[in-house]
Design a protein around this nucleic acid. Sequence first.
DNA 1: GAACGCGTTGCAACCGGTTGCAGCCGGTCC
DNA 2: GGACCGGCTGCAACCGGTTGCAACGCGTTC
Lengths: 337, 337
Amino acid sequence: MAITLKEVAIRAGVSRSAVSRAFTDGASVSDKMRRKVEKAARELGYSPNALASSLTTGRTKLIGLVSNNFYNPIFLEVFDLFTRGLQDQGLRPLLVNLSDETDPAASVRLLRQYSVDGVVVASSTLPPDFASAFREAGIPVVHSFGRYAEMPEIHVVGVDNVECGRIAARTLLTRGYRRLAFLGGPETATSTQDRFAGFSEILTGDGNVGFSHSFAKAYSFDAGREEMLRQLKGTPAEAYFCGDDVLSIGALSAVRDIGLRVPEDIGILGLNDMEMARWQNINLTTIRQPIRQIVACSIDLMVSMLGAPGDSPEARIFPCSVIERGTLRPLPSAGAT
Amino acid sequence: MAITLKEVAIRAGVSRSAVSRAFTDGASVSDKMRRKVEKAARELGYSPNALASSLTTGRTKLIGLVSNNFYNPIFLEVFDLFTRGLQDQGLRPLLVNLSDETDPAASVRLLRQYSVDGVVVASSTLPPDFASAFREAGIPVVHSFGRYAEMPEIHVVGVDNVECGRIAARTLLTRGYRRLAFLGGPETATSTQDRFAGFSEILTGDGNVGFSHSFAKAYSFDAGREEMLRQLKGTPAEAYFCGDDVLSIGALSAVRDIGLRVPEDIGILGLNDMEMARWQNINLTTIRQPIRQIVACSIDLMVSMLGAPGDSPEARIFPCSVIERGTLRPLPSAGAT
DNA sequence: GAACGCGTTGCAACCGGTTGCAGCCGGTCC
DNA sequence: GGACCGGCTGCAACCGGTTGCAACGCGTTC
């Protein structure tokens, strides 16, 4: 069906090597030869078979893009940024959806069969050893949105979730809230654990504040709403730090449904700053993760690993910032006590 | 780095063909041989190179998944469904983001270089000839969310957008709205054109109703909001059929901002029934596209094309239904005139 | 005991490219 | 005129598998 190098060679009246070289830049070919080959190739509609060439060169330009976050709207942006960023580098994302697969070995096997040049694990909920499995298999790997560590085993790009927890706690305190709560995502996710650790670090030992915590079943609207409804049946806290925006929005809807006002009766602080957070009907105060930078940096690291493998793994951590909207009381004015 | 078939053959003390056959089911191999090979393979950690085998077999199990809708939240679900569905069939999605690329030829070339077995174009805004370009290149193709046609050139799966427009018009009429408007997405998208065609088909010639139309710049919150604000400066209609939920939500926020009530002052009808539509803070009445079925059917068609290429293209169209929520007046009770 | 048939195995060519090496060619220098 | 040089080009081997074909071993049949 498709035209091969051999047919181009015949048409141009040259050897197969000549054609091959005409299509690799930097190769030793005269201009005349290159023009001759290109003409024949154009006439036949030839384009080289990337997979065949990968056999000898050892590079496929295929990058495994592995994720299990297909329910979090923020990941639509993540996928957009990754696919475009990789394409700009001449790399092709082979998407792997891990939603119903938890065995790293299976993914490693799959991606090795396709000889991917590298793997990006884009997930805040997969355990760190998932990504490590690729490194052990000798595949360059970057874990985006992964857990921060001083001396990571693999490249990690993301935010320091412990610090996010601290920021959340401080933010709520400076607004004058005193009975606080952490409403996290699934307890098994490292991101949840870390955010909670930072949150409690700040609040523990402060006699003036009390805090509680609970975990929603998933990072979803329904899970957030359900957990908040449960809270409201008891004695709710004055303010909640939710593990994610979509949880926050679920919580928000529960609070309003029951006739309480946000932020007057209950404050809510999200995390991620996904697009919907700024929709006026939602208007969520939240902690922003710099997604663009995280993705761009992940791609940079991947590209540099492809060029020079074996550099020691590092953690690139980006700062988060509070985006002020309508679900927390304003800061008390400067003059007040 | 990776173990090859040859090494396994040496270790097992058999020929390379024997190893190859041990890994293809249906091949003529004795049980004894198969066990011997499998043992050696296990000890070495061998897994066959899918790309190398594709050279001779002509199948890569790679499917190009082409889209340009990386801003519409509904596509997160679409990607989830596609990636899982394809994986379940043993196929691997190679994701192509077309957001800043409009030349079909470039995509065709790219996907041919990677010898994909087939291509799924998942987009409601790409022109039909985009998908046709793949067929012309001899690549099996399915256009999901594409334009309905009696005799399509390629497989099309989706909804009949003209009929959606009719449903929208009838829905608004039965609620008693008389001055109607169509607030579409980009005018160049076939989905926009078709929905508008159906909408006006019903309303044209009815002396009791008037209708106007306008187009937002994109399928986005901001675009919907902006266009609705423009409308509100003039004399707004009583009810708007918006080209998409995310547009509707933008429009909704504009209406509320200006102090008008929905649905009392202005009614809004969306299209898609994306997840956020049912969030209580939004609660959008909308026309639902059966996404799951569309994706499942697309995959079915693809799989059957891979098995038996050359069957004539068909359009598989699924019905849409109105999801009743809070942004349209209720149906007048049966007894009323 | 020879002929036959069948299931299994290995040989070797091939898939579509890449690349080390040797040879060719034209030009330059002595 | 001969030696030398450097840029191009082609040959042939190779990347990691697959597969048509022929050969082999072994049990069955006459």
